[in-house]
Computed example of a mutant assay.
Amino acid sequence: MSHLFFLVGPPGSGKRTVGLHLARLTGAALLDNHLINDPVFAAFGADGVKPLPPEVWSYTRRIREVVLEAVEAAPATQSHIFTAYLADLPEEAGWLDTFAGVAARRGASFVPVWLDCDREVLLDRMGHPERRERLKLRDPAALSAFLDRKGTLPAPAGALQVDTARLSPADAALLIAAHAGALF
Score class of each variant (00 low, 15 high):
Ala84Leu: 04
Ser109Val: 14
Leu123Tyr: 01
Leu122His: 11
Val102His: 06
Val111Glu: 03
Asp116Tyr: 06
Ser109Lys: 13
Phe99Arg: 10
Ala87Val: 08
Ala108Ser: 15
Glu91Asn: 11
Val102Tyr: 09
Ala103Val: 09
Trp114Cys: 02
Arg105Asp: 07
Val102Arg: 07
Glu130Arg: 12
Gly101Leu: 00
Arg106Asp: 03
Pro129Tyr: 02
Gly107Lys: 01
Gly107Ala: 05
Gly101His: 02
Val121Thr: 15
Phe99Trp: 12
Glu133Ser: 09
Val111Ala: 00
Met126Ser: 08
Trp95Asp: 09
Leu86Cys: 08
Arg125Pro: 10
Arg125Cys: 09
Glu92Gln: 14
Glu92Ile: 08
Val113His: 02
Asp116Glu: 15
Trp95Ala: 02
Arg131Gly: 05
Arg105Gln: 11
Gly107Asp: 05
Pro112Arg: 06
Asp88Arg: 06
Val121Phe: 03
Ala100Leu: 09
Val111Lys: 02
Val111Gly: 03
Glu130Leu: 10
Thr98Glu: 15
Glu92Tyr: 08
Glu120Asp: 15
Pro90Lys: 10
Val113Asp: 02
Gly107Ile: 05
Ala100Met: 11
Phe99Ile: 13
Arg125Met: 07
Asp118Gln: 14
Ala103Thr: 08
Arg105Trp: 05
Asp124Ile: 00
Leu86Gln: 07
Ala87Trp: 03
Gly127Gln: 10
Gly127Asp: 11
Asp88Ala: 15
Leu86Gly: 01
Glu130Tyr: 10
Val113Tyr: 06
Asp88Glu: 12
Val121Ser: 07
Glu120Met: 04
Ser109Ala: 15
Phe99Ala: 02
Val113Arg: 01
Leu122Pro: 10
Glu92Ala: 14
Gly101Met: 02
Tyr85Val: 12
Ala84Lys: 04
Glu133His: 06
Ser109Glu: 14
Glu130Ser: 11
Val113Phe: 04
Gly127Asn: 05
Asp116Pro: 00
Ala100Gln: 13
Cys117Leu: 09
Leu122Asn: 09
His128Ile: 00
Trp114Thr: 12
Asp88Gln: 07
Pro90Ile: 10
Arg131Thr: 04
Phe110Val: 08
His128Cys: 01
Ala100Glu: 14
Leu123Cys: 07
Gly127Val: 00
His128Thr: 02
Leu122Thr: 09
Phe99Ser: 02
Leu115Cys: 04
Leu86Trp: 08
Asp97Tyr: 00
Val111Ser: 03
Trp95Leu: 14
Arg125Gly: 02
Trp114Lys: 12
Ala108Gln: 01
Trp114Gln: 12
Met126Leu: 06
Arg119Met: 14
Ala93Gln: 13
Leu86Asn: 03
Glu133Thr: 05
Leu89Asn: 01
Pro129Asn: 03
Pro129Arg: 00
Gly94Gln: 04
Cys117Gln: 11
Leu115Lys: 04
Arg132Met: 06
Asp88His: 13
Arg105Leu: 06
Ala104Pro: 00
Trp95Phe: 15
Gly107Gln: 10
Ala87Cys: 11
Glu130Val: 06
Arg105Phe: 00
Ala84Trp: 03
Arg119Glu: 15
Cys117His: 12
His128Phe: 04
Leu96Gln: 12
Trp95Gln: 14
Phe99Gly: 01
Leu86Met: 08
Glu120Leu: 11
Leu96Arg: 15
Arg131Met: 07
Glu91Ser: 14
Ala84Tyr: 00
Val102Glu: 07
Arg119Leu: 15
Glu130Phe: 09
Leu89Arg: 15
Arg125Ile: 11
Arg131Tyr: 05
